[in-house]
């Protein structure tokens, strides 16, 4: 029974969920906070404000009057009968994270290079799983960030909700 599970979920991938999108008080950026199931692993990814807002809208299931860019990608996929299967945070070089989006159509599988912000915004809209490779988690921009994020978390509750 373990082997079946491993086929669906390769062991080097860790499933993550988006916990929150924080405002970085010092710059006009957002921090997307991803955690694994038991919240023992945190992966913070810095993204631009527009990218962060796209993720927030999807997290809060806000339906905008007009389709946003990632709604449009979802709509293209729906029109073409393409399924968005999963997104993977694949690599980190310096402070730049890399991601891929896996699509499937009639048994054809394709993977496209993407920024994590696009991949995550899309995953939330397509209800598909988000993974990070174990390698990325091992090399993520240092564990001391956890403490830093926890500090921001309690300090900036109001700006977060604004």
């Amino acid at each position: 029974m373990d082997s079946a599970k491993q086929q669906n979920e390769p062991s080097e991938l860790v499933a993550l969920t988006v916990k929150q999108v924080l405002d970085d008080g010092n710059t006009d950026t957002r921090i997307v906070v991803l955690k694994n199931d038991d919240a023992s692993v945190t992966l913070p990814i810095w993204v631009g404000s527009a990218e962060g807002n796209a993720i927030r809208l999807a997290m809060e299931r806000v339906v905008t009057p007009r389709p946003m860019s990632h709604d449009l990608i979802r709509s293209f996929a729906d029109h073409l009968g393409v399924r968005i299967e999963r997104v993977v945070i694949t690599d980190v070089k310096g402070s730049t994270y890399y991601a891929s989006v896996a699509f499937a159509s009639k048994g054809v599988h394709r993977t496209l290079d993407a920024r994590p912000s696009d991949a995550i915004a899309l995953a939330l809209r397509a209800d598909c799983p988000i993974y990070a490779t174990q390698d990325v988690l091992n090399r993520r921009t240092a564990v001391h960030l956890d403490a830093w994020i926890n500090k921001i978390d309690t300090k900036n509750i109001e700006p977060q909700q604004a």
């Binding site: 860019s69 990632h70 990608i73 393409v82 699509f103 496209l112 290079d113 993407a114 920024r115 696009d118």
Partner: peptide, 29 residues
Amino acid sequence: AIGLALENVTAPRPMTHDLMKSFLETFDA
């Protein structure tokens, strides 16, 4: 997103509309 395309600037990482374009190309749309 429009300005980058007008100026023919290729961003180091694919921007949202670059992803859209590569998605459509990948599936021959």
